[in-house]
Design a protein around this nucleic acid. Structure first.
Length: 490
RNA sequence: CGGGGUGUGGCGCAGUUGGUAGCGCGCUACGUUCGGGACGUAGAGGCCGGAAGUUCGAGUCUUCUCACCCCGACCA
């Protein structure tokens, strides 16, 4: 089985690449570093989008859209921000092409832009330039806007979904009258991400603060959710930034408060990207292919008929359509695959590869006995049930699968989270198993950098819930008050 | 930008001392199959990344060029 996939245990990276391609999620485009998201992959992204969008709306946010292009001058208004992104920006310098004497299409040098445009790597600057005009009074606040967009960061090395030059994401940008309110928003959104990861993606995460080094360019504080992949590496799955008054000051966004006093506006921004697709794959999939949690599966149930030529299909189609309609009425997405160009075995393998949570097979024996065969993707187990019980059974089964995938992931995270108290163990733990490593750190950037240099492990976050505990830094031996989360990461 | 590698049907590859291109998968047609990726038969499909050179003759040798991939420095 799964003879088309590289074995996950032999070569995890290759297994991932194979899976993305073979499951028809995405492919590399002719444009270096950019991907083509294929319909099946995009369907999963649309599910992610739809659920997140509901959560954003439920927390009071609205959607809007800001330009792809950002004037270079805007970009340089916030010092830390420029520094963070300058090295990976695509720049538009001209607006016209022409035919050369040789008949080639060339840039028309006479059509040079007065001010160059940056292709957005993120939208803080262009958005705050607008907010400046929108905000005069505390009555105009808060502004709670999200946008779904593409952004471009010119990366050296890319991998489908995990890091691509262009990627899709959402970015929330909010403006508040008080520091407390902005901080609360920052915290609220990281919690939204965390609960989305857990409840929909079935991925448990660790929420925490980023160290100063890992912080977003221009933020006073960055919160992140970190997820553990099956190869023991961490993946940052979402971030929420408390931007303080940095962007308000850079773009001169002031408002009059209730007391008639002028003050700068407080800001947050937060985002998740198509990288979540990578997380979804690497958290759950196995050597047979994807395992998609039912809540995000574009196709939740597939019905495969097993028939020999001569009119056998008819009876099955009738039974299948009845099941399909009944399940759809219960809000379940169902496909009846009656293609006669592929054999059942081929279809079984294909839907496993694509991670469809539940497969129903109906064959001649089932018709005779009024049964169906139900197979679940997460455990690969099969059972034959009375056809009449399908409408009670399948919804329960989907819930069960969602829960099982999550508890498996929780178990995995638990088993691969280690408390380490000295340098030797730290290194051997990283090399032997990887995983989340909770260890003491002296809180200095120098130590953090040294650890990264020597081990490639970074501080993923300082967990919100990590208890006060006296200890010694694993690297410097200096005193430390709490453990932080270390890991090698994507 | 350093270090390594690869360019040959749609995809993955082979191609000997230079002699005019082949295999697997996929594709098309027909037939037999159909409870875990079926089989047979017959087909279609290639300026061998590009340019120049050596030679009677270049996928193969030489030079130049272009593109892509992998490993590092940067990153959601």
């Amino acid at each position: 089985m799964a003879k088309f996939l590289t074995n996950k245990d032999d070569n995890y990276a290759q297994w991932y690449n194979d899976l993305v391609i073979k499951a028809d999620l995405a492919e590399n485009s002719v444009v270096r570093g950019c991907m083509v998201i294929k319909p099946y992959g995009y369907a999963i992204w649309e599910k992610i989008q739809a659920e997140l969008d509901k959560l954003f709306k439920a927390t009071g946010h609205v959607n809007a859209y800001f330009p792809l292009f950002i004037p270079k001058s805007f970009f340089s208004k916030e010092a830390a921000h420029v520094e963070g992104f300058a090295k990976e920006c695509a720049v538009v310098t001209h607006y016209r092409l022409k035919l050369s004497e040789k008949g080639e299409i060339v840039v028309d040098e006479t059509a040079k832009l007065d001010e160059e445009l940056i292709v957005r790597p993120t939208s803080e600057t262009i958005i705050w330039n607008s907010y400046k005009n929108w905000i005069q009074s505390y009555r105009d606040l808060p502004i709670l806007i999200n946008q779904w967009a593409n952004v471009v960061r010119w990366e050296m090395r890319t991998r489908l979904f995990l890091r691509t030059t262009e990627f899709l994401w959402q970015e929330g940008h909010t403006a508040h009258a008080t520091r407390e309110e902005a901080e609360e928003e920052t915290r609220k959104m990281i919690n939204v991400y965390a609960s989305f990861a857990e409840n929909f993606m079935a991925i448990p995460v660790i929420k925490g603060y980023k160290s100063e080094n890992e912080r977003f360019a221009g933020a006073l504080d960055t919160y992140a959710i970190e997820a553990l992949m099956q190869d023991g590496k961490a993946l940052q799955a979402g971030t929420s930034h408390f931007l303080g008054q940095n962007f308000a000051k850079a773009f001169d966004v002031q408002f009059t408060d209730k007391n008639g006093k002028l003050d700068y506006v407080w800001a947050t921004s937060w985002g998740v990207s198509t990288r979540l697709m990578g997380a979804l794959i690497m958290a759950h999939a196995d050597n047979n292919g994807l395992i998609i949690p039912p809540k995000l599966a574009p196709l939740q149930v597939v019905i495969v008929p097993i028939y020999k030529g001569d009119g056998q299909l008819e009876g099955m189609a009738k039974a299948a359509m009845k099941i399909k309609e009944g399940l759809e009425a219960r809000g379940i997405t169902v496909k009846f695959d009656d293609r006669d160009t592929h054999k059942p075995g081929f279809k079984f393998a294909e839907y496993e590869l694509k991670g469809v949570p539940v497969r129903i097979a109906i064959g001649p024996r089932d018709l005779e006995n009024n049964t169906i065969e139900v197979a679940r993707r997460d455990t690969l187990s099969k059972e034959t049930i009375p056809a009449d019980s399908v409408f009670e059974h399948i919804p329960k089964l989907l819930t069960d699968i969602q829960n099982n995938i999550l508890s498996k992931a929780i178990q995995f995270k638990k088993e691969n989270t280690y408390h380490v108290d000295n340098w030797k163990d730290f290194i051997s733990r990283l090399d032997d198993t990887g995983g989340f490593i909770m260890a003491h750190w002296d809180g200095t950037a120098e130590t953090e950098a040294k650890i990264k240099e020597e081990t490639k492990a970074t501080i993923r976050c300082i967990p919100f819930d990590s208890p006060e505990e006296a200890g010694k830094c694993i690297y410097s031996g200096k005193p430390s008050k709490r453990r932080v989360l270390f890991a090698r990461s994507y």
